[in-house]
Design a protein around this nucleic acid. Structure first.
Length: 484
DNA sequence: ATGTCC
């Protein structure tokens, strides 16, 4: 098969390989259906980016991409690349501007019937309590420098210490909400300024807080372990590290661009700027990125606390009756030092996941005790009109994708095309007819994020399911959403 | 994604 001048070899029904040519150190591998490959990648630079990533020093096994692959800064979004710690590099392009962008899912004990009479006031309350949009601020008091330092070094543990969460919230957050080697001192003053009033804010674009109903259960036993039942009201929060993470990425792209020259790397794209993980520049970026990741976990934690408060106020309930529990919090834009089997040896590698979700298997030491019998919850949001999925990690993901899966639907229309498509329509009423109440800062975001702007997330999730990388556990249907 | 240009 030839796409956009790139020759692909079919390995399995939904797995394609780009052979190792020219300066590539490893082959490329893309998990995708033939249909999606032809329809979405024929005019896209993303496959070329999979090949470019394969040039990175120290890359192991494959330059990988998930079915929601699309063009990104340097690396494709939906890309996964692991580099070894000896000669391998770390690259901000492999993480993205929104460091530790991620999703969390929390349960309630309520059903749709129970919340329906007060659904509109609930969405209004959520919209009032959680600042949304570009430049949104002021969810909690402006942070002092010592509080910011604690957040960057302790992540969502800070929120729990400040009565904005529970011990259980920490337990059910990836990495327990803290990357321990994070270093406040390598984060610029400007990044700190941007973050000072942004803890507990949602942001813009595809970020959202959604009220969903569990519409379908595929694996009852796994769903039960995750605390999910059919008809249950749950919430999803999708956001990242806001201006602070953006600034960290921006600052270190400059540092690593210089480092790429210093270390004499010949890279096919400047946007792959990187440094050896062991180098001073690589270590500084890693520590700053981890600090931004901690900021993002704390951000999602504070937002979740405000959401819980909104539920309690709207339904005039006691906390003990609400059944509010965090199922899991996953990041999908991050580089992590993890142990993986490479050939016959277990090696420590730096796994770049850019628009890819960790998907660890049953028995993994890195997942909560409660989930060890079934595997890690993998949260895959779709668009605001259709549905989202909860899946579970597998051993095959460890063998083939460094324990990774897809992270969302991926765009179908550019923002510009979506705006054109939305012109003259009343998307708020259209969504209401579908049973979704929406409140957003501006109509522009609603238009750019309209359901038709996204691919069907079911197609994306099915690729990973059919290839055995993650298995479907539950489908969630949106009933209310707030956006920037 | 992003105080959508320091």
């Amino acid at each position: 098969m030839n796409i956009n001048g790139i020759e692909l070899k079919q390995i399995r029904e939904n797995l394609w390989e780009i052979p190792q040519i020219n300066g590539m150190r490893v082959p490329g591998r893309i998990y995708i259906s033939r249909e999606m490959l032809e329809s979405t990648l024929s005019e896209d630079e993303a496959l070329k980016q999979v090949m470019n990533v394969a040039h990175l020093p120290g890359i192991e096994k494959y330059s990988l991409a998930m079915p929601d692959i699309h063009w990104g800064y340097g690396f494709p979004i939906g890309g996964v690349a692991a580099t070894n710690l000896d000669e391998g590099v770390i690259s901000p392009g492999g993480v993205g501007y929104d460091i530790n962008c991620g999703v969390r899912l929390a349960t309630t004990s309520l059903t749709l019937e129970e919340i329906q009479p007060k659904l509109e006031p609930l969405i209004t309350k959520l919209f009032q309590n959680i600042p949304t949009g570009v430049g949104a601020s002021g969810a909690i008091k402006k942070l002092s420098k010592s509080d910011l330092k604690k957040i960057l070094e302790k992540g969502s543990v800070w929120a729990v210490e400040n009565n904005l969460g529970t011990q259980s919230d920490i337990q059910f957050t990836e990495e327990s909400g803290t990357l321990k080697n994070a270093d406040f001192s390598v984060v610029s003053e400007r990044a700190l300024e941007r973050g000072a009033d942004q803890a507990g804010t949602l942001g813009s674009g595809n970020h959202f807080l959604e009220v969903d109903v569990v519409e379908e259960i595929y694996e009852p036993k796994v769903a039960e372990v995750f605390g999910l039942f059919k008809g249950q009201v749950v919430i999803q929060i999708h956001t990242g590290s806001r201006g602070l993470g953006y600034q960290v990425c921006d600052d270190y792209l400059k540092v690593l661009l210089k480092a790429s020259e210093k270390y004499g790397f010949k890279l096919p794209d400047k946007q792959l700027a990187c440094a050896p993980i062991k180098s001073q520049e690589g270590q500084a970026y890693l520590a700053a990125m981890q600090a931004a990741a901690n900021f993002a976990w704390n951000n999602r934690q504070v937002i979740m606390h405000l959401a819980k408060k909104s539920f309690l106020e709207t339904f005039d309930m006691k906390e003990s009756d609400l059944g509010f529990h965090l199922v899991y919090d996953v990041c999908h834009n991050i580089a992590k030092i993890e142990k993986h089997q490479i050939g016959n040896v277990i090696k420590e590698v730096c796994v770049h996941r850019k628009g890819a979700t960790r998907a660890f298997p049953p028995g993994s030491e890195m997942i909560p005790e409660k989930y060890k019998s079934v595997g890690q919850p993998v949260l895959i949001p779709g668009d605001m009109g259709r549905y989202s999925y909860v899946a579970v990690g597998t051993e095959k993901a460890m063998e083939e994708t460094f324990g990774s899966s897809c992270h969302g639907a991926g765009r179908n229309l550019s923002r510009h095309k979506a705006m054109k498509e939305a012109k003259g329509r009343d998307l708020v009423s259209e969504l209401k007819k579908k049973g979704v109440i929406i409140q957003a800062k501006g109509y522009k975001t609603i238009a750019e994020e309209m359901p038709a702007a996204y691919k069907d997330v079911a197609d994306v999730v099915d690729v990973m399911h059919k290839e055995g990388i993650t298995r479907k556990v539950a489908k969630l249907k949106p009933v209310g959403v707030i956006k920037g």
